[in-house]
């Protein structure tokens, strides 16, 4: 089965499985465990114009079927990324999506402009939804006006395919989605982590150094599916879905909810090879559901689509 995905501005993925930003480092870290060239794409950890220090530890905490993190977007800045990490990623043959972050609109622009000068960047993911940064980060993703402003500013300086990563921590994700579409986003990636808190009872205080954190893993999958399903009906641009994907069947759920491709993250920490396993399993899982291509699967569960009942139920009478 052909697993290729055609996205806007000529972004073509060999399959719909993308390593999610923040879970796959800047590229080389997983090289001895994962055939990076086999992935649809890699979205690197958030890159800012200057190095960011990140939040105090502890930075991760396990919760039931979830992972709460407060990394705080630690990264060594766009210059080091371009010299140290990008050449490696370019050589793997996978598509490279650079997740960009900033404290101000101007900082987002600076990262995007700097990446214009580099070969091997296939797309940008504008991160307006990290819950672990006080200024910038999620605040841009909270208000439609601010989301519009930052996306429009980045659009002015880049012709690269651009996706915007949405926050689940808003009342109406669809409103933010429509704002970024109007500002020139080519795609939407959703969702970022869900804001949460854990208490370390032995220390009698919040478990994470950053106090609150972002929840990921299977615990957030229903939240993610709900938002993908709503946003898919609110905008015309493609959606990259994510949130707790552990299996090929999870991928099919996101496709049916309206996503054209997906990102896989938290499960990689436990099983680095899981993305490859999903890519290998996906054709058989689709066929078992009487589906013969990715494209016919996308959006099948959306309202107005007449779903084909499985043959066994057809034969009931």
């Amino acid at each position: 089965m052909n697993l290729e995905v055609q996205l806007p501005r000529g972004l073509r993925l060999q399959n719909p499985i993308i390593a999610a930003s923040g879970t796959f480092g800047f590229g080389p870290e997983y090289a001895s465990f994962v055939d990076i060239g086999a992935l649809g794409a890699v979205s690197v950890k958030g890159v800012s114009p200057e190095p960011w220090p990140g939040n105090p530890p502890p930075r991760v905490w396990e919760t039931p079927l979830g992972l709460l993190n407060s990394i705080g977007l630690q990264n060594h800045g766009v210059e080091v990324f371009c010299h140290q990490d990008l050449p490696f990623l370019r050589d793997t043959g996978t598509k490279v999506i650079v997740n960009i972050i900033g404290h101000t609109v101007e900082e987002y622009q600076r990262v995007a402009e700097r990446l214009n000068a580099e070969k091997g960047v296939d797309a940008l993911e504008v991160n307006i939804s990290c819950p672990n940064i006080k200024e910038g980060g999620m605040s841009f993703g909270q208000e439609p006006d601010q989301a519009f402003a930052v996306v429009q500013a980045v659009r002015r300086v880049t012709d690269l395919p651009m996706m915007v990563k949405l926050s689940p921590n808003v009342t109406y994700p669809t409103v933010i989605a429509q704002a970024v579409e109007a500002a020139g986003a080519d795609m939407i990636s959703a969702i970022n982590t869900v804001m949460g808190l854990a208490i370390d009872v032995k220390r009698r205080r919040p478990a994470l150094g950053g106090i609150t954190g972002g929840l990921s893993g299977p615990a957030v999958k229903p939240v993610a599916l709900r938002i993908v399903y709503e946003v898919a009906q609110a905008v015309d641009i493609p959606i990259i879905g994510m949130g707790g994907i552990n299996s090929a069947l999870d991928v099919v759920e996101f496709l049916m909810a309206g996503a054209q491709a997906v990102m896989v993250g938290t499960v990689t920490f436990q099983y680095p090879n899981r993305m490859q396993e999903i890519i290998e399993a996906l054709p058989a899982v689709l066929r078992s559901l009487q589906l013969n291509s990715l494209s016919e699967t996308v959006g099948l569960a959306l309202p107005g689509r007449v779903p084909l009942p499985p043959a066994s139920e057809d034969a009931y009478e």
Binding site: G22, T23, F24, G25, E29, Y30, S32, F33, K45, P53, G54, P56, P57, P58, R59, V60, W61, L67, N69, I71, Q74, T268, F269, P272
Partner: peptide, 30 residues
């Protein structure tokens, strides 16, 4: 330290260390 990936990708298991220009967080895993 509480650790995530173990290979240096997630930057969870950091400790405070002396960097060239002041304190930096370094990874326990790598």
């Amino acid at each position: 330290q509480r650790m995530g990936c173990g290979v240096g990708a997630c930057l969870a298991c950091v400790v405070l260390a002396n960097g060239q220009n002041g304190p930096v967080y370094r990874r326990v895993c790598t």
